[in-house]
Design a binder for these strands. Structure first.
Lengths: 195, 195
DNA sequence: TGTCAACTTTACACGGTGTCAAGCAAAGGA
DNA sequence: TCCTTTGCTTGACACCGTGTAAAGTTGACA
């Protein structure tokens, strides 16, 4: 029961962290806030997660698991044509962003100062880039990639279009609806990259 | 002579700040670093600029003046057609970004925590948005705005495309050349917004 | 009964921002 | 010549958030 309580506490902390970050993104959420929200002492948090970056990393993984990213992104891999794949990927990732925005924002804020956080975020974004790369390759294999576009540049462009910062700018700063955002990204990707 | 030295010190501090930020963007530049680089005590900096945000704001204005933003952006206002105006604006602003990137990055890092810095940065970006708005309006007046696009959405899209974060992503993270960046932004804006 | 594991409480070090107060040196006027 | 003002220096300190250290508490279980 003690060992299960150990795990339960860990989960409680991660759950509280993701809840707080999701509730008030942009607000600086402190370790003590997370501790309080978990119903645990600040030091208990440090017992489970040596640093803030460690907690953030674990929380991100935890969220991926709870939200089942793999399944959410599976549709795009099942697509037959390149165009479908591109569309499905934009749909999947574009709609995943708001679900992880709180944690993402915390990462982006720490990135500048914390080495470990920067590396972890880079990893996640590299993984996302692979999705972009696969969509572009599928497009190219169909002969549907706009002529004169090399795959790497096309991937970079798509990657930029689908960055969390672009989502943030349009949805948070400009006040676009999630649907308008996804449609705009599809439109941009289509007109820019598809022949 | 004392009153002129007063101004000189102020300028020295702002010059040192912009130099340090430009030299090592991404590195956290502290007030004490700026003081040292200015050849002045840390408290002298606080004598001239009550807070870090104040220093940043003044430095940004100072930089605008030294680099002569107005002139750099003038070409776009002189353009006759909407398409020319769009192109000229992307050219001007897109090439201005790297010149202010150091300071911009400092603002973006502070934005999350500092109210004053966030407001000042928002002001600057709103001013930039007016440029986007004007370009889109000129396009619409020529009947060259893609049908089914309302001007506000088009402005938002262009604004997002020309954000410092987009520049950062492509040039800093993806390693694109400044020229490739500007061309890509022109291409994206053209294919997405021009009829 | 005693041990171990998870957790609590309290205290403290560190780095960065911002404040406060006393002192100093040079310019400039009486 | 003396005296005031101005621009700056020096050194100390408060505050906050992260992270560390150490001793104490509580419940499970052998």
């Amino acid at each position: 029961m003690m060992s299960s309580s150990n795990l339960e506490t860990r989960e409680k902390i991660m759950a509280a962290a993701s809840r707080l970050l999701e509730e008030k993104p942009g607000t600086a959420v402190r370790m003590s806030d997370i501790a309080k929200a978990s119903g645990v002492s600040r030091q208990a948090v440090y017992l489970h997660f040596p640093t803030r970056a460690d907690l953030l990393i674990a929380t991100a993984r935890h969220l991926d698991q709870v939200l089942n990213v793999d399944e959410q992104l599976a549709a795009s891999r099942a697509a037959t044509s390149g165009r479908e794949r591109l569309d499905a990927y934009i749909d999947a990732w574009g709609n995943y962003i708001p679900q992880i925005y709180g944690v993402a924002r915390a990462f982006l804020a720490m990135e500048a100062t914390d080495e470990a956080a920067a590396a972890a975020w880079k990893d996640r974004m590299d993984a996302m880039r692979h999705g972009c790369e696969a969509a572009v390759r599928a497009l190219a294999e169909d002969g549907d990639l706009k002529p004169g576009f090399d795959q790497e540049k096309a991937t970079d462009l798509l990657w930029t279009l689908l960055s969390v910062r672009t989502w943030e700018h349009l949805v948070q700063d400009c006040g676009w609806s999630q649907q308008a955002y996804v449609e705009a990204m599809k439109y941009m990707a289509e007109t820019a990259l598809v022949a």
